[in-house]
């Protein structure tokens, strides 16, 4: 464990909590892509199946449970409790355009051809594109609530910090997981234009609105 990974996990947890609080407090999931949240719940479900087979540490187990719970509560709030407030017509990204290539690739490129490993690989590839429906929705509506931009900032920051963690682990433990690294870099690249808008607009107190 290193500081980049701890900060990354905290950033990830913070993002998830910001979103939960936003939906719960405002009793609305306007501007939030329910599809992205479904993909994140799927990412955690397929990645954390080893929760019952491999014990890494208390921290690892606790965080996995928290992430799983928060993901499903968020999906439940969007499609259950506050479904009347979800603008599903703007949340129109075709999930099959993501799920089909990700599934195919996880069978082609993996560390070993076992069920758990393929599901883990699937979750890694899926996570790198899971935010696309949300970014697509913002590009369609042309704007995002400030609290949603903070959610996206910490969500993007978490994988950027993981890249620092992988560089650190490569130099200190000669540990290197090519699938996670390549996916993580792709995932972070998808946030770059958002990071630019966040820094140039939101941090200057303006509302995030796309030109």
């Amino acid at each position: 464990m290193n500081v980049f990974r701890i900060l990354g996990d905290i950033s990830h947890l913070l993002a998830i909590i910001i979103l939960l609080v936003k939906i719960w407090k405002s009793k609305s999931c306007a501007g939030i892509s329910g599809k992205s949240q479904i993909l994140f719940a799927l990412v955690f479900t397929t990645r954390y199946l080893d929760l019952f087979t491999t014990f890494i540490s208390i921290y690892n187990t606790v965080m996995k449970v928290i992430f799983l719970l928060c993901a499903y509560i968020t999906v439940y709030m969007i499609y259950g409790k506050f479904r009347k407030t979800s603008d599903s017509e703007n949340d129109s990204f075709r999930l099959e355009f993501l799920l089909v290539p990700v599934t195919g690739l996880s069978f082609l490129e993996n560390h070993n051809f076992t069920a758990l490993e393929i599901l883990w690989t699937f979750s890694i590839y899926l996570e790198s594109v899971a935010i696309l429906p949300q970014l697509f929705m913002i590009s369609k509506t042309g704007e995002a609530e400030t609290i949603t931009t903070h959610y996206l900032f910490f969500l993007g920051l978490y994988r950027a910090l993981y890249i620092a963690n992988w560089i650190w682990r490569y130099h200190t433990e000669n540990f290197y997981d090519q699938i996670a690294v390549v996916s993580g870099v792709v995932q972070t690249i998808f946030y770059c234009d958002f990071f630019y808008l966040y820094v140039t607009k939101v941090l200057k107190g303006k509302k995030l609105s796309l030109p």
Binding site: D9, R47, T54, H111, W120, Y176
Partner: peptide, 10 residues
């Protein structure tokens, strides 16, 4: 490259 047999990251 030392690939991860055990996935110890979240």
């Amino acid at each position: 490259s030392v690939e991860s047999a055990k996935h110890d990251e979240l």
